[in-house]
Design a protein around this nucleic acid. Structure first.
Lengths: 287, 287
DNA sequence: AATCTATAAAGAAAATTTTTTGCACCAACT
DNA sequence: AGTTGGTGCAAAAAATTTTCTTTATAGATT
């Protein structure tokens, strides 16, 4: 747990003086990161020892450790505290987007359950056929991306963002098939129906969605992607980065489940590209 | 310019003792970030004053400032220096992917040219019709994403990843049309042909690709995305994250070019979603 | 209601640690 | 031989932590 999370978690239980310190951290991060203990104490109108005690309370060994922890979270965390970008100047817009993307990745990683992902990778690897479903622009992107990443490993996979087709495919699914679906909001009722249908057909269902949501409840396995503080701070656009990372992770873990198959398939694809395009073997696997 | 970049840039001109300090930074980042000046000096077998002087040389005011700068770059930079995480344990794979994605965003941001992006946003905003082209899995994803993001702003846009269609669309393009194409490798010869054709037809061409590559040379405007790729063939290209961020930035800047149009269109889409799905207005714009 | 503990919080000053500065020395190159 | 740049030692300065004391607060007791 990083300093900022801890700060927010414990904010209520802080004393008078400690709250003043916390406020400075929250309001003028840059100052706090660069200040000495005396400067920070003066600004908060407390004594240096109080700052030291505050650092201990936040789980740090000493003030130096505290500053390091703080500085580490700056890049990803600073904007999290001051959510809205004020300017529409190109450079500011870019920074805002990059930072929010970084944040999404950071927060996702923090809540990521490796064992769960491993389980899903195992399921994918053993599937006879995989169906990747999603719709609405963002989730359909994820579905396609699942296909794009997993077919390279030798898996049989079909992505589909058409609800009608999804229903038919789900109905036709078999025991050893896997239906993996994504929904950013977790409220895609069509996907719930598809999952239900697929389960009735005996297939295994996996949801990439908000934990505890209707979609999450309707699947056998759920990898939750929860951006804390609700959806307000993050536009769906930054959440996409988290989902994309999740797809990459799943693809990697799946590849390691059956290295031979993955290597062979990748080599086949690569040979095709080299023969067809040029002989530079650093050529990317797919443009 | 951050500490690590500076470190690598000046590494050659460093003295004996300073090189030893630099080596510790590069090899045992964690230690360096947490160490006191004396500990760092001992480990490098130099005197504390030498460390102080080293910090100054790296553009910092003092040791404390140096440590803060260092810590700031940790999250995005640490793994960049120790390239390959060897383990295939789920948690390590996840961390590796997340960190590489963070890095890609970081490196992209560092070399990002805001004015250029603004120019392209202007061009997109004034286009009669936009064609987004890409192929090969990754670039086609970007093309679709361009469509997904820009249609919401009221732009007329069509994404296409089929070379045959791309050629025909390019041939049919007009003066006020824009053809925007992406190629991660910069070696997509088909895209070069498409751009050439589009320019002959009088349309404006924009490439999102590796700077200086054939594709880059064939377009009117280029937003370069240059990224060192890891060489683990199982690792999906983290470059995608940079491209995705670029799409977001372009979409945002384009939205600001004509706020009214963007707002009106977004409201229309939102109303449809609310009416059709549920009344929770935190519902994401597209699942 | 007033007063008395017990306990926690906060500051002052001292002690300690850490960092920087000034100076001297050494090695390499002119 | 002289100069320059690099380095370490020791002392000074600065920053941080510890110890000790005071102050505030809540609950208990008269």
């Amino acid at each position: 747990m990083d300093i900022l999370a801890r700060l927010q978690a414990e904010h209520e239980q802080l004393s008078q003086a400690e709250k003043r310190i916390a406020d400075i951290l929250l309001n003028d991060f840059d100052f706090a990161v660069n200040a000495s203990i005396v400067e920070l104490a003066e600004r908060a109108e407390v004594s240096p020892p109080t700052v030291t005690r505050f650092c201990r309370r936040m789980g740090c060994q000493n003030f130096a450790d505290f500053k390091v922890q703080l500085a580490k979270t700056t890049f990803v965390g600073a904007r999290y505290l001051n959510p809205e970008a004020k300017s529409t100047a190109p450079a500011d817009v870019a920074e805002d987007i990059i930072t929010k993307a970084q944040n999404a990745l950071f927060l996702f990683h923090r809540s990521f359950d490796a064992d769960l992902a491993q389980t899903v990778a195992h399921i994918l690897s053993n599937a006879e056929m995989v169906y990747a479903f999603g719709s609405g622009g963002n989730s359909s992107l994820i579905a396609e991306e699942l296909q794009n990443r997993l077919f390279r490993l030798g898996l049989r996979i079909s992505a589909c963002s058409d609800h009608g087709m999804q229903m038919m495919l789900a109905a036709a699914a078999r025991q050893q098939d896997v239906v993996i679906g994504s929904s950013f909001s977790g409220r895609n009722e069509e996907l719930v129906k598809v999952f239900t249908l697929a389960r009735e057909a005996g297939a295994t269902t996996v949801a990439l969605t908000q934990g505890g949501s209707p979609v999450a409840r309707s699947a056998d396995h759920v990898i939750p992607v929860d951006m804390p503080e609700g959806n307000n701070i993050f536009r769906p656009t930054s959440t996409r980065f988290a989902y994309l990372a999740l797809v990459d992770i799943l693809a990697n873990l799946t590849a390691y489940q059956d290295k031979t198959r993955a290597t062979v398939t990748l080599r086949q694809i690569k040979q095709q590209l080299v023969a067809y395009r040029d002989e530079d073997d650093r050529q990317l696997l797919g443009d």
